[in-house]
């Protein structure tokens, strides 16, 4: 768990301009999806990026893979600054990153057979002969639990859980060091969710992978993460080990988020929800973006954006709050 940094993200900012009419009469607005995010992901760990809709977690994941070019900031992966890489360098670096998305069916090309889908990253990077690639697809299919006899079928013949297995096999084809999984189990049924999570845990142990795991589901993050980053309004508000963040949260938002998760059995009708809603990405409040919803907010919170620092100095947990618990 205490490996070296495989991935380090520094001051990542991503703004999306909102385009207007043909001649751009009128000023366009900007969606501030990510507003300065920094973190390190160590070799062999699973870092869960959690937060609610629109908090910027998916944008961070895509910027790390350079699917979006960051507006500013650096993304160091295996010692290379990804933001400086162009076509060939980027393609070479991407070989070491596997991607898994939320909707398994739409992320698989419906015209390709499963064998070709799984071997696609190998074909893209020109690894091996077509025969070797097919053999590799066999191997991966067996590892993720897809029957060899099904390899010549097409994605629509499979259930959601099986499609996600295929997507995992594809993500692992080029032997990546890092796998970015964006809500990989969110669209799956409960009994299938745990199957796929188990597969991810299994693959990580066997292949020494590192995961950047994006999820809105606290329970899923709790099950799979070594460390957790909680995002709110494009920023990380709390960062630390899974035990600390989920059992001793220091940021009021983390606390509210954890309290909102319904528990199995027993807390019927327990009222405790807060009445407010997440901010929009086009107009963020001044100071700490959480202050309009925060029960502890004071004058300072409306004026100054708190830095992500260690409360009290010594602890391993970082929080962006003027008045942490």
């Amino acid at each position: 768990m205490n490996g070296a940094a495989l991935l380090s993200v520094e001051g990542l900012v991503k703004h999306f301009p909102v385009q207007r009419s043909l001649f751009r009469l009128g000023r366009g607005t900007v969606v501030r999806a990510v507003n300065g995010v920094s973190f390190e992901l160590r070799t062999g760990e699973t870092l869960a990026l959690v937060g609610e809709t629109g908090c910027g977690k998916t944008t961070v994941a895509r910027a790390v893979a350079m699917l979006y070019r960051p507006t500013t900031g650096r993304v160091r992966f295996r010692g290379q600054d990804m933001t400086r890489l162009r076509r060939r360098g980027l393609k070479a670096a991407r070989r070491h990153i596997g991607l898994i998305f939320q909707d398994p069916l739409s992320s698989l090309n419906p015209r390709l057979s499963v064998a070709r889908l799984i071997a696609e990253p190998l074909a893209i990077h020109g690894i091996g002969s077509s025969r070797q690639r097919r053999e590799r697809a066999f191997e991966l299919a067996a590892a993720v639990g897809i029957a060899i006899g099904d390899l010549d079928r097409h994605p629509h013949a499979f259930s959601g859980g099986q499609c996600q297995r295929i997507a995992i096999a594809r993500a692992l084809a080029s032997d990546p060091a890092l796998v970015i999984a964006d809500e990989p189990v969110s669209s799956l049924d409960a009994s299938i969710q745990s199957q796929v999570l188990n597969l991810l845990i299994d693959m990580k142990e066997r292949r020494g992978l590192s995961y950047l795991f994006i999820t809105h589901d606290i329970a899923v993050a709790d099950a799979i993460a070594d460390r957790v980053a909680v995002m709110y309004a494009g920023r990380i508000v709390e960062f630390g080990g899974r035990d600390e963040v989920f059992h001793h949260p220091v940021h009021p938002y983390t606390r509210a988020l954890l309290d909102a998760v319904p528990q199995l059995g027993g807390d019927r009708g327990k009222a405790r929800s807060e009445p407010t809603e997440p901010p929009s990405a086009t107009s963020s409040p001044s100071g700490c973006p959480y202050h309009p919803r925060c029960p502890k907010a004071q004058a300072l919170c409306k004026e100054t954006m708190p830095d992500l620092t260690s409360p009290g100095g010594g602890g391993a947990t970082l929080a962006a709050c003027h008045f942490p618990d």
């Binding site: 768990m1 409960a190 745990s194 199957q195 899923v220 709790d222 070594d226 528990q263």
Partner: peptide
């Protein structure tokens, strides 16, 4: 079902119980 707090404190991510098949 993944439930917050099912995994014991201090333990690495371990496999969940699961229902085989579909």
């Amino acid at each position: 079902v993944p439930v917050k707090g099912r995994r014991p404190l201090g333990s690495p991510p371990t496999k969940l119980a699961s229902i085989p098949g579909q």
